[in-house]
Write a protein that binds this DNA or RNA. Structure first.
Lengths: 239, 239
DNA sequence: ACCTGAACACCGTTCAAGT
DNA sequence: ACCTGAACACCGTTCAAGT
């Protein structure tokens, strides 16, 4: 073991670490985003983030209100990765819409912890607005009435997010199918007397999670939105 | 302050507390369910549950694998509260279906923490099977093809669960609308140049979370499922 | 005025040791 | 064989005290 030639911290009073950069909100969020990218959302904690930034956790509270706000910011940062190119591309509008949604879903699929956050926390930042704008533009192009389009976008994102959260969690657990097995066992073992429909449809109930199902969901929502008007025009004026 | 006449624990070697009941899996789950009912799902922790049961947290691991399994069990217990009476009642099948779904949604609305658990964890136990069975029975009555019904049930529960989790979380936070304000502010402040559709649809985007929206979602899914067949019959045999 | 060390009040899970 | 005390390795957030 060679002797340590330099102490961990610089000589005495003043320290000159490798340029411990001054903290800013942007820096904090950027480091948090990197942390999630490298280690997953479950590892994004105030304490671990502080460690990366070479401070104590208390210092972070100067830049973010709490964990929820931090997660919203990271989520917003990640949405930069959604491919919005299909909006301006050639081809049928609904096919391009499916591509945008698939890009969003794929992102959350790769970061299941983030999907879990997204179920509960709205992303902050402009990328989220850009995503909504993109979906609204495509729906407008497809002639979906404005009021339905607004709610439909919500439904699209809700379904994509929740699917990713649900599936991602199962995929992470134990040996990939262990937790699912609990449901699978229950469904497969369902008494045909008491649960005849379940027993008859076992395979259909357990199939899916694949892209087939996601695509069917989108098709269904599009067809449904085209067919069903929004509830009574409401008596509320334009406020 | 009167002197304590009896020590907390009985005299010496043998203790005879108020019948500390022998632990069983059922007892643990029942106490956990009561805890959630009284204090909310966020307070369901191994340590707090152990305290209620008058033991140490380590002892619980004899009866449940981990926190996730415990939550699944509690969730399953709660599903006993879903009103399945509409299944056998009179009236149009789709109206009865809406009532069952509304009962499920209402339950999760009252326990937002539980909704958050449900997004990620499948309930264990028979009540969950009973709920699926009920929905499948109603869809069969409505003539929805089997394969679509199976996936549709998943979608129904996904949407109801995720809506409750999302809305419930926002409702819990700060002063009811604080977190929502972050989105609302972003949407309202959206530059009309860069996000024209968002700017035009502000009010529609922010409206909802009400029962109107939930009902529109259900109508949309029903109409969609009636209109869109499941993807190609698939080349896979019956395994 | 701005930042943060240290403390407060918690977590889930494991395992060696007891009965 | 069954149960559990004590420990390990963590959390988020606050606030008095420092610069």
């Amino acid at each position: 073991m060679p002797a340590v030639t330099e102490p961990r911290t610089a000589p005495a009073g003043r320290r000159e670490r490798p340029a411990k950069p001054a903290l800013t909100r942007e820096g904090v969020v950027a480091t948090a985003t990197a942390l999630v990218r490298e280690e997953g959302a479950a590892r994004l904690t105030m304490r671990r983030l502080a460690q990366r930034l070479d401070t104590g956790p208390a210092s972070l509270y100067v830049y973010v209100r709490d964990t929820a706000e931090l997660q919203a910011a990271v989520l917003g940062e990640f949405l930069a990765g959604v491919d919005l190119a299909p909006v301006g591309a050639a081809g049928p509008w609904d096919e391009r819409l499916r591509r945008v949604l698939a890009s969003y879903a794929g992102l959350l699929h790769d970061y299941p912890g983030l999907a879990r956050v997204a179920v509960v926390t709205r992303p902050s930042g402009e990328h989220y607005l850009a995503l909504i704008e993109a979906l609204l533009a495509l729906l407008a192009e497809g002639g979906v009435p404005d009021d339905r389009a607004a709610w439909l976008v919500d439904l699209f994102l809700l379904v994509a997010t929740a699917s990713a959260a649900e599936h991602g969690t199962r995929a992470e657990e134990h040996t990939e199918a262990a937790a699912d097995d609990a449901v699978a066992r229950a469904v497969r073992g369902a008494s045909a007397d008491r649960f005849p429909h379940v027993a008859r449809l076992v395979e259909d109930l357990l199939s899916g999670e694949g892209p087939d199902r996601a695509r069917w969901f989108v098709d269904l929502m599009l067809a449904g939105a085209a067919a069903v008007p929004r509830p009574s025009p409401s008596l509320v004026g334009e406020g």
